Computed example of a mutant assay.
Amino acid sequence: MGGELTAKGRATRDRIVEGAALVLRERGIEQATLDEVMARTRTSKSQLFHYFRGGKEDLLLAVARFEAEQVIEDQQPYLSSLDSWEAWEQWREAVIRRYEEQGDRCPLAALSQHLGSRTPGAQAIVVGLMHRWQEQLAAGIRALQEAGHLPREVDVDERAATLLVAIQGGVGILQSTGRSYHLRVALDHAIGDLHRLAEHRPAAVPGS
């Protein structure tokens, strides 16, 4: 339906999705109601069902897409510019700050669990997020290679996957314990491994 909307229609739909995301973060999926979403976004029931014909499930799916985008957006501008060690350190701090502020609640995980396999496209949202995230990390590692900070033989995809696992594992423990210690340690080790590869890269051959 998104391609059929006017600019005003897209703005209204986006306002509903963003407002619903706030309600769900505050109230939780099970407690939040469409009436609360309508009140928060100043929309009528007819408007809501115009943009989300499947009702609450369609709205939740749209909010899941929004939350997936937020995961990437909250790491910017650093995630898209990982071309120096300083940029990697800034990105690390942005990631830790984001998940410390989020605490023990993960809106996207809660939505994915609620929607489950019965909702077409729900799993694809998370899969797509992980793919984009790993690709951006891989691009950052390639940028280090281009800048001469890492040897060419480094397995970029393997290192990007390791970083993503470090984040996901650390965040999972943070959500269980309320402590960001494990996330910090995991990221420090993953980025530290890149530093050690840089330190042991072959010396440049004069005139090459």
Rank of each mutant, 00 (worst) to 15 (best):
R13E: 00
R13W: 00
I16M: 01
V17G: 01
V17A: 01
G19M: 06
A21Y: 07
V23T: 10
V23K: 08
L24K: 05
R25S: 12
E26V: 07
E26N: 10
G28E: 15
G28S: 14
G28R: 14
I29W: 07
Q31T: 15
Q31N: 15
T33Q: 10
L34A: 05
M38K: 06
A39Y: 12
A39L: 14
R42A: 14
R42L: 14
T43Y: 03
T43W: 03
K45N: 04
K45Q: 06
K45Y: 04
S46P: 08
Q47K: 05
Q47H: 04
H50N: 08
F52Q: 01
R53K: 14
R53D: 10
G55L: 05
L60W: 13
A62G: 03
V63N: 03
A64M: 13
R65C: 02
F66W: 11
F66M: 05
F66Q: 11
E67N: 06
A68H: 03
I72L: 15
I72V: 13
I72H: 00
E73W: 04
D74L: 13
Q75Y: 03
Q75K: 11
P77C: 01
Y78M: 09
L79I: 12
L82S: 04
S84H: 02
A87K: 00
W88C: 01
Q90C: 05
W91I: 10
R92K: 01
E93I: 06
E93V: 06
V95A: 01
V95S: 00
Y99S: 05
Y99Q: 06
E100H: 02
E101C: 11
Q102F: 04
R105K: 14
C106D: 15
P107H: 04
L108C: 09
L111Q: 03
L111P: 13
Q113S: 12
G116A: 02
G116C: 03
S117R: 15
S117Q: 14
S117E: 15
R118A: 15
R118W: 10
R118M: 13
A124M: 11
A124C: 06
I125M: 05
G128M: 04
G128Q: 07
L129Q: 03
L129A: 05
H131L: 09
Q134D: 13
E135H: 09
Q136C: 08
Q136K: 14
A138R: 09
G140I: 04
R142W: 13
R142V: 15
